[in-house]
Amino acid sequence: MGSLSRIGARTLALACAAGILSTGSAAVAVAAPSTTAEIIIIDGYTQTVKESSGTAVLCPTNQVLLGRSHSGDENGSTTYYCGLILIDGQQVRVGAPTWSASQRESNSFFAAPGDHVLVGRQHSGDENGSTRYATATMSAWGRTVELTSYRWSPSQKESSSYSKAGDYEVMVGRQHTGDENGQTQYQYARIVD
């Protein structure tokens, strides 16, 4: 049997990845132009919870956080957007999550350690309640997936916020001040092949 062409291999990898996901998927980014590896990020699992409920949200196995949105006060809804990453057709493996210590939401700042990505978050109560984050490492082809080009999103009002990673990016941090009328920012980093 002959070998698959690069395009055939990519199509097969996308079809396999689509079968893995429990929700509809769409490719977010294809073939990073500045690298030799083909990096594909596919929208995956999405979960919406009541912000104040204390529900711990974790992306499914081998998915990472790509974005978050929130509407209203602490009784409003928060939606988490996870995704799956392929590098040269191989699904990136995401390590076991490690939870951070809790911190007061109204003056919170969290940035994952180097080459770690956010995979979950938990919040209880209002702005005086506690928030914690889950992080993990990523690997492909037997090596750690590295991150570069760390950046913070512009500030936005928490009660009507939406932010999602750009091309070839994953979410690695978040900061918030005040109540639902306070400002929120997200930190993203770019995947290195």
Rank of each mutant, 00 (worst) to 15 (best):
A111N: 12
T23W: 14
T79S: 14
T35K: 04
I87Q: 07
L86W: 04
I42G: 00
A31D: 14
A17H: 07
Q103G: 15
H123I: 07
E127F: 09
A112Y: 07
G76Q: 01
D115C: 11
G67H: 08
I87F: 01
H70Q: 13
D88V: 09
L58A: 03
L84T: 10
S106Y: 14
T131A: 08
E51D: 08
G76M: 02
T35Y: 05
E105R: 12
T79V: 10
Q91A: 08
Q91D: 05
F109G: 10
S108T: 15
L66F: 07
S52K: 06
L118G: 03
A56C: 04
L118E: 01
H123Y: 08
G44S: 03
V94N: 01
R104E: 13
E74T: 03
G72T: 05
H123A: 09
L84M: 13
E74V: 02
I41N: 00
T55V: 13
W99I: 12
T46A: 09
V49A: 01
T79Q: 06
Y133M: 11
A37V: 07
R121T: 09
G24W: 06
I85R: 04
T23P: 00
Q91I: 09
L86T: 11
A101N: 14
F110D: 06
V30I: 13
P60E: 11
G129V: 10
G83P: 00
Q63S: 02
A37L: 04
A112K: 02
E127L: 05
V30L: 14
S22R: 12
N75Q: 12
E105V: 10
G54S: 04
T48W: 00
D115N: 15
L86D: 12
H70L: 08
T36W: 06
N128W: 07
G54W: 01
S100D: 11
F109C: 08
